[in-house]
Design a protein around this nucleic acid. Structure first.
Length: 332
DNA sequence: GACTAGGAGCCAA
DNA sequence: TTGGCTCCTAGTC
């Protein structure tokens, strides 16, 4: 956050496309999670909108049509949305949009229209990519598959817990107890509301995003090429989404293989030799704690587990020992 | 204070 | 049995 275009005053409304995205890329989802008690200020990653737009409008009414529009070739959604509510876009997308940044350039109207159209296409593609990346991140953290239809009851509870924290909702896990992903997907919006008056519609909408994303992964109509960029950004299947228990060394390697998302907390010093450095020990251990459902995980414990790998010949300290630096014995 | 190293007990799969 | 969590002490930076 912090870009000039994203300064807003008023109440904070968590808008899913925005919040999910910003959370994962700034690496602040967990920080926001842990800072939950602290804030009187808007949490990082959540865009604030002027007060008058928030209470009257159901959240689902705001972002679901936006997401649906992303799946069509109609790029006018952004303009339509701007009439009714602030556009739900990552700040990054706004900053990079030539049209939005070209105010006052005085382009001829025809050319302006073309540029605008191209810009909107770019924004659509970027937003969609961000949404898919966010889902990928959530999958890694929660160790669930991206397709809600495949979730068991435990997965559903994890997803609910994550969503509660993300949007600061009251605890709703109990009212959705013993429901599988299939059950959840078969429920109507009204069913959601009946179970939770307060946030049923938001949960329904959020689930809808995940379902739509899963649909994108497996395009419904053959030859439909409008979502190529989204498919390209979809992660390859790995242990993070297979439902299999994961080993710590695998988890670390997964983080290392996604420098875009986790480079700020763990990175290669020498990839060929398998030497890596944990830049943010607290953050990495918290990620591991979430992954293993161990809220009390800390670096003390994580490093103890790493040291167990010394004997097994999986990880060791490099020849020149440095703090927070380890080496895979068998580099990738 | 944060990190490193390793012993030991416990638990779940 | 194995992998990992937890608690512990001791030493180093």
């Amino acid at each position: 956050m912090g870009s000039p275009g994203c300064d807003h005053v008023g109440s904070t409304v968590p808008l899913p496309l925005m919040s999910f995205s910003d959370y994962s890329h700034s690496g602040s989802a967990l920080r926001a999670w842990e800072e939950e008690e602290e804030d009187t200020k808007p949490p990082r990653g959540l865009i604030s909108v002027p007060k008058h737009t928030a209470p009257e409008r159901s959240l689902q009414g705001v972002f679901l049509p936006c997401f649906d529009m992303l799946l069509t070739e109609n790029s006018s959604w952004l303009l339509k949305k701007s009439d009714a509510a602030p556009p739900v876009l990552p700040c990054k997308a706004l900053e990079q949009c030539p049209v939005i940044n070209s105010q006052g350039l005085g382009l001829p109207s025809g050319l302006e229209g073309q540029v605008e159209e191209r810009c909107l296409e770019q924004v659509q593609s970027m937003v969609l990519g961000e949404v898919l990346k966010d889902i990928e991140t959530a999958c890694i953290l929660l160790n669930i598959t991206p397709d809600p239809m495949e979730w068991n009851c435990g997965n559903v509870q994890k997803w609910l817990l994550w969503t509660e924290h993300l949007y600061r909702l009251p605890q709703v896990g109990k009212v959705f107890q013993e429901l599988s992903g299939k059950d959840l997907c078969s429920m109507t919006e009204e069913d959601f509301r009946q179970r939770s008056m307060q946030c049923g519609d938001l949960l329904y909408a959020h689930l809808d995003i995940w379902r739509s994303a899963a649909c994108i992964k497996e395009p419904c109509t053959p030859g439909d090429n409008r979502l190529h960029s989204a498919e390209e950004s979809w992660p390859k299947a790995d242990s993070s989404c297979s439902g299999q228990p994961i080993h710590l060394w695998q988890f670390l390697r997964e983080l290392l293989l996604k420098p875009h998302n986790y480079g700020h907390c763990i990175r290669w010093l020498n990839k060929e030799k398998g030497i890596f450095k944990i830049e943010d020990s607290a953050y990495v251990s918290r990620l591991w704690g979430i992954r293993k459902n161990r809220p009390a995980m800390n670096y003390d414990k994580l490093s103890r587990s790493i040291r167990q790998y010394y004997k097994k010949g999986i990880i060791r300290k490099p020849d020149v020992s440095q703090r927070l630096v380890y080496q895979f014995v068998h580099p990738v």
